[in-house]
Structures are given as structure tokens and as C-alpha cells.
């Protein structure tokens, strides 16, 4: 059966605000899964809590809607239990970098074969507009009426220095480009981080589609090779009048699952009906 965007219909309609960047990410993800032939029964999407996390209701795949910030640990547990199962994490900037910051760093360090898509809009939309960890200095929100005073977190540099083996940035207003990045990210064997710049049309009147479009440019294959960590970091801190999108860093390394000797003979889940054998162990205690 051919997998298309329609394969994921649930009969539920999105509740996101009209014009929300989440639509572009959702559309891109459906198209990417179609291109990868990952159908509703074939993979697991683990969602966090935030506007992004409501996506499952109109996205028919196996879904785990976890606790705020805790999507990555759930995804890693599922992946270790069944490492042949495609596992994708749909998260947000508050979910992944605020409440779940520690999990993000350690997931990157372990390099599980999981793709995380960060809906990065600088605000907490679901709680009606407070500053997120990526909110830029000076940005006025309900929790920062005088403007954000802290430095913003940079998901890309954090991912790179933490050990992620695929780090990219896309734009919710460019579904075609974003689909391509998602396909690459999911195909990558290892921990792939895709930060998606996304306007919040309700709580952010500054970072609009137009604001992004006038600044974004693509890292082109001709003059940028995503193989140098230091160069990737230099690119990742570019912000202001010119903001790069594309693949910043990519390397091949053994995954978390590759390093588990117990998985060499197949997924743990294939052993789920059998008791353990203690015969060889008991003598140790005698």
C-alpha cells in the first residue's frame, strides 16, 4: 500500500490557530513519512506537551503523548525495546529545552537512532504566551513584560556540543524544504535534531513569516559541507539579518542501540514471551 499524507487521517481536525507554523511542520512530516514508506502501524511518534503535542489527534500513527519534557526518555526506552521500530519525537522549544533540557543533552550524548523535531517558536502557546528558552533578548511576552533579559538557548549549538550526529534547521513556512530535511533526518542513523523555526501568529507579532522570509538563506551544498564541528558551530550562531537553514552537522557514529550487546541478535521485543535462563548464574552465589 502506498503511504501518502492521507494515510494519516484520523477524522479529527486541527485545533491550532489559523496560520500557525505547526501546520507546515505537520504537512511536512506526513509527506516525509509517505516518502519513507512509514505508515500508521509502522513507527512510533512520541509527543511532548505544548501546542506541538496536540498533533497526534490528527496524525494517525502509533503515538505516545507523554508528560511535559519527557518525550525523549520514553522514545529511548521504546527504541531499546524494539530497535527496528522507527521512533520520532515531536517536541517543542519549551518541552525539549526547558522542562526536558537534561534529557535532550543526554539523548544527544548517547546517540540513539531517534529523530527529534523541535517546534521552535520562542513562546509557550498552550499556556497563552510566556517566554520559552529560545526567546530572544528583549522579546516581550506575558512572563517578560519588559522584554526577555536572559540569553536565548541555541538548540543547534547545544545539540552539536552534546554529541548529536545530525543537526539541522528548517522553516515551517517552507514545507517542501522542510520535508526534504525531515526525510534526511529520519534516514540518518543516530540522534538527529531538526530545529524548526515557526511563527506563533497569536503571541508573537515580531517573528512573523515575513520576518523569517526576509532573513533565511539555505546552506548550499556547493560551499558548505556539514562535516566540521567547529564550522558548524560558527554557522549555528549566525542570527540577525541573515539566518541559515539546512544541515549544519552530520557524522556517522555507533548508535546507543549498536552499543548494546543484548540487541545483536534482534530486538528485545522478540524475546517478550520467554523467561530468563538462570542456570549459568546460580553457581556464582554458592
Amino acid at each position: 500500500m502506498t503511504i501518502t499524507a492521507d494515510s494519516f487521517k484520523t477524522g479529527y481536525l486541527p485545533t491550532w490557530c489559523p496560520g500557525c507554523g505547526d501546520y507546515g511542520i505537520w504537512m511536512s512530516l506526513k509527506n516525509a513519512l509517505g516518502e519513507l514508506s512509514i505508515g500508521p502501524d509502522d513507527g512510533l511518534i512520541v509527543y511532548g506537551i505544548g501546542c506541538h503535542g496536540n498533533m497526534y489527534d490528527w496524525m494517525r500513527t502509533y503515538g505516545f503523548i507523554g508528560l511535559h519534557g519527557r518525550a525523549l526518555p520514553v522514545a529511548q526506552g521504546a527504541k531499546l525495546a524494539n530497535h527496528r521500530l522507527p521512533v520520532i519525537v515531536v517536541s517543542g522549544d519549551g518541552d525539549c529545552l526547558g522542562e526536558g533540557g537534561n534529557h535532550f543533552i543526554h539523548a544527544a550524548k548517547r546517540n540513539p537512532d531517534i529523530n527529534v523535531i523541535i517546534h521552535d517558536n520562542q513562546v509557550y502557546g498552550l499556556t497563552t504566551g510566556q517566554a520559552s528558552p529560545t526567546a530572544k533578548a528583549g522579546f516581550k511576552t506575558k512572563s517578560t513584560p519588559e522584554g526577555v533579559v536572559d540569553e536565548p538557548m541555541n538548540p543547534l549549538t547545544l545539540a552539536i556540543v552534546s554529541g548529536a550526529t545530525f543537526v539541522a534547521r528548517g522553516f515551517a513556512g517552507d514545507p517542501l524544504g522542510l520535508t526534504k530535511l525531515m526525510v534526511e533526518a529520519v534516514r540518518h542513523k543516530g540522534f538527529s535534531v531538526l530545529d524548526v523555526l515557526q511563527p506563533c501568529v497569536t503571541f508573537d507579532k515580531v517573528h512573523t513569516y515575513g520576518w523569517y522570509r526576509s532573513r533565511l538563506y539555505s546552506l548550499s551544498a556547493s560551499d558548505y559541507a556539514p562535516t566540521d564541528k567547529l564550522r558548524a558551530l560558527t554557522k549555528a550562531v549566525e542570527w540577525g539579518d541573515h539566518i541559515p537553514v539546512g544541515i549544519f552537522y552530520r557524522e556517522e557514529k555507533p548508535t546507543s542501540e549498536d552499543r548494546e550487546p543484548a540487541l545483536a541478535e534482534g530486538p528485545l521485543v522478540s524475546q517478550r514471551e520467554s523467561q530468563g535462563n538462570l542456570d549459568s548464574l546460580l553457581e556464582e552465589f554458592q
Binding site: L44, R70, P73, V74, Q76, G77, K79, A81, N82, Q271
Partner: peptide, 21 residues
């Protein structure tokens, strides 16, 4: 698996459980 903290630990175990083991 040694998790980064107990919060991760229990969520990992829940993920593995949901996946079938």
C-alpha cells in the same frame, strides 16, 4: 540503561513497556 536521572529512568521504562517488554 543508566539514565541521566530518575525522571528519565521511569519514562524510559514506560517506553520500553509500551513497546512490549
Amino acid at each position: 540503561k543508566q539514565p541521566e536521572d530518575e525522571i528519565a529512568g521511569i519514562n524510559m521504562a514506560i517506553g520500553a513497556s509500551i513497546a512490549g517488554v
